[in-house]
């Protein structure tokens, strides 16, 4: 009975982790399911062996199968099935496929402390958006700056980052890695504006040496738009997505 309960709980856990893939077409990656399942099974086992009584109940059928002379047939069947299952799983894991190998890509590069662009050196630790202050001081002017930032965005950025700023622009699907979505609370909401300024101005080639190859298709926007335009487009992407840049005070 306990052993059956254990099997049922393991199956329920597995199905639960598969749900997002089945219902929404957004699967939890297999690498993560493996980790989730490992610890789910461990916890089920820990709970079931936390008392002597339940441990005995859990192990009794296994013990009986291994030791009871009358269960010779079941024992032999199990001893054949277990290595076969293990073999199949191993084969499935290591068989050659045409799919490219899994990638561990760092999508959050660490910025340098200073950058040299537009002929000047910027200290990224102290750098602030010169227009941010107007949000409080002069809301009308701020609104106008955001509108100008929107123009910059739709002239240059939306082809890849999308008209909804969700990273699904016309050309975006052709790239790997895909363009970053600005929607949601887990991308630009986590960043200081100085960081976003660095990413826009120096693009893919400006990414640090660590975690290469980045393969980012982001252009070096320093070569195409002005410093002021970068700050304005930053105002726009935060404003449009309802995010607030990271700050320390």
């Amino acid at each position: 009975m306990r052993l059956l309960q254990f099997v049922i709980w393991v199956i329920i856990s597995y199905l639960f982790f598969k749900l997002p893939g089945i219902l929404m077409g957004k699967p939890i990656p297999s690498s993560l399911i493996l980790m989730y399942m490992f610890f789910a099974v461990v916890m089920i086992l820990l709970v079931m062996t936390s008392t002597e009584k339940s441990t005995r109940e859990l192990l009794a059928p296994i013990k009986s199968m291994l030791e009871d002379p009358s269960k010779k047939l079941i024992r032999n069947v199990v001893f054949v099935i277990v290595p076969i299952v293990a073999g199949v799983i191993t084969y499935e894991q290591i068989k050659p496929t045409y799919e490219a190998p899994v990638e561990l890509r760092s999508t959050h590069p660490a910025p340098p402390s200073t950058i040299k662009i537009y002929g000047k050196t910027y200290d990224l630790l102290a750098l602030e958006n010169p227009y941010r202050k107007y949000e409080k001081e002069d809301p009308e002017k701020f609104k106008e700056l955001v509108r100008e930032g929107g123009e910059v965005y739709f002239k240059h950025c939306f082809y890849c980052h999308g008209d909804k700023l969700d990273g699904k622009g016309h050309y975006g699907q052709g790239f790997n890695p895909l363009p970053l979505p600005f929607q949601g609370k887990d991308t630009i909401a986590q960043l200081q504006e100085s960081y976003v300024f660095w990413r826009i101005a120096t693009g893919g080639p400006g990414l640090p040496k660590e975690s290469t190859p980045w393969l980012s298709a982001m252009p070096i926007w320093e070569d195409f738009i002005t410093e002021e335009e970068i700050w304005k487009v930053i105002l726009f992407i935060y404003d449009y997505t309802g995010n607030v840049p990271r700050s320390w005070e």
Partner: peptide
């Protein structure tokens, strides 16, 4: 936050984030 993805999972998710 950043997942280890197979190419098919990457395509299904449409990015590195779930």
């Amino acid at each position: 936050h950043t997942m280890i993805l197979t190419p098919s999972e990457l395509k299904a998710l449409g990015g590195q984030y779930h």
